[in-house]
Design a protein around this nucleic acid. Structure first.
Length: 106
DNA sequence: ATGGAGGCGCACA
DNA sequence: CTGTGCGCCTCCA
């Protein structure tokens, strides 16, 4: 079976441009509460040539998390800004405005 | 099987 | 709002 990894990827792929979601949110959406960490793990294990917009995934505070390869932290911010996501001076995103809420359907 | 580590979250202070 | 501590579950050596 393809574990939850596939579910995470499918979900992340459905995130609309200019929007972001948190790890914990993804965990709940794939019916796996408390899997926030594993979501991060899944994204860290993304295979080459994938089509998953991992940059739209941030932590609960709306900031880009530290990761193994720090180079990608800046890259992630650039990608988001390129989609219209605004970052505050402290490097955070205003989740009220940019967090994607699947349910809302709005 | 065991221990350490990992792109986090939540409760508290 | 920020920093700290502990819990969650899986992966890897």
């Amino acid at each position: 079976m393809t574990s939850y990894y596939q579910q995470v990827y499918d979900l992340v792929r459905s995130i609309p441009e200019g929007k972001v979601v948190t790890y914990g949110q993804i965990a709940k959406l794939i019916d796996r509460p408390r899997y926030a960490r594993q979501v991060g793990y899944a994204l860290a294990a993304l295979p080459a040539g994938h089509d998953v917009p991992w940059h739209r995934v941030v932590n609960a505070r709306g900031e880009i998390s530290r990761r193994a390869v720090s180079d990608y932290e800046d890259y992630q911010q650039i990608l988001l800004e390129d989609e219209g996501v605004e970052f505050e001076l402290n490097g955070r995103i205003d989740l009220k405005s940019y967090q994607w809420v699947p349910d809302a359907n709005h």
